[in-house]
Design a binder for these strands. Structure first.
Length: 302
RNA sequence: GGUCGAGUAGCUCAGUCGGCAGAGCAUACGCCUGAAAAGCGUAGGGUCACCGGAUCGACGCCGGUCUCGACCA
């Protein structure tokens, strides 16, 4: 059984290139994409999905799991990807995870029991959040599950509603389902992070957005909008898609939309860095120019 | 050349009667277990275009200079 290897980093850090080079050098590798948006079919350009050629050369998992009209969550991902990782290893191959979505990765690397969903409870809480405001719900969470309440800010309605949904629905505290994300215990996953300077990453993101536009991202979005089933809430917020939908259906100019894509992608990359850098188990590889030549030797030694 | 308007945080702009300089966005940092490419919080940041004047006190009033814009010639 080969233990899994993780290549992670912000968008445009070169994860996929390094992964393909690693697979080519080792041969006994299959790739698992850990990415919240590559799970959607026909959302290819904007999610920087691996090419058909790459997917032919190396088996990929975690990609094209659902229709874009289908809502998708961490729990869905864990249900699909965890068995895939186990299956690769069981066949004597090396699972190589390429991760950009921190929470999705944690659902694989750490023993996480994700509580269920209680739609009725949720609906009532959403209504109360509108009427009573976040503070009232937070106060209730403090009394029902002080541990969970202390883990989130009292203004974060979305997280508070979720914690209350679970606590009321399951009849036991939200925090009883696990230690939360701040618990970094040893794992068999060897994790390597690609790290760039902010300036270099900003430049690469700008180039990447240009490349996606020339590759036909606008047409891809237009095609998705023509489909009979509307995009799910989770799919339509994807970087590039959200902005180009606003261009096609709202009054936003194309230039403004493209600028917004670059800005939001940059902000996303920073958020990815901030998420990953908390995890002390990650080994960081600083990249100056070429991710493949600079990171591959280190990965092959691991 | 003349008239009018504008010049305040990186950007877009508020600023009441002259009394400690403001917001949104951006940036930095942080939080977050079924929306995570989502959501939430904290912080830093100013020669108020410039020079002079009146005033206890000026971003504000007076005089001049510069820059930008509109209009008139």
């Amino acid at each position: 059984m080969q233990s899994p290897l993780v290549i992670l980093g912000p968008t445009a850090s070169g994860k996929s290139d390094v992964a393909m080079a690693f697979a080519a050098a080792r041969v006994d590798v299959e790739i698992v994409a850990v990415d919240a948006m590559q799970v959607y079919r026909r959302m290819d350009i904007g999610t920087a999905k691996p090419s058909a050629a790459d997917r032919l050369a190396v088996p990929h998992h975690g990609i094209d799991l659902v229709e874009p009209s289908h809502p998708f969550t961490v729990a869905d991902f864990a249900r699909a990807a965890a068995p895939a990782v186990a299956n690769i290893a069981a066949r004597g191959l090396k699972p190589l995870l390429v991760a950009g979505t921190g929470l999705y990765l944690r659902a694989l690397t750490d023993p996480m029991t994700i509580p269920g969903q209680w739609p009725d409870v949720r609906a009532e809480l959403d209504l109360r959040a509108e009427v009573e405001g976040p503070a009232a719900l937070h106060a209730q969470l403090v009394s029902l599950d002080p541990v969970a309440a202390s883990r989130m800010e009292s203004s974060n309605v979305r997280r508070i509603v979720r914690a209350l949904e679970v606590t009321l629905g399951a009849g036991r505290p939200f925090s009883s389902f696990g230690a939360g994300i701040n618990d970094y215990r040893p794992t068999e996953f060897a994790q390597f992070g690609l790290r760039w300077s902010r300036d270099a990453l900003t430049r690469r993101i700008g180039e990447r957005v240009e490349r996606m536009m020339s590759a036909g991202l606008l047409a891809e979005v237009a095609e998705l909008l023509k489909e009979p089933a509307p995009l799910s809430r989770t799919a339509r917020q994807a970087l590039g898609y959200k902005e180009l939908i606003e261009h096609l259906e709202g009054g936003v100019t194309l230039d403004a939309a493209v600028a917004a894509i670059a800005l939001r992608t940059r902000q996303f990359a920073v958020r990815q860095e901030r998420w990953f850098r908390r995890d002390p188990r990650i080994r960081w590889v600083t990249i100056e120019h070429d991710p493949v030549t600079e990171a591959l030797p280190i990965l092959l030694q691991s």
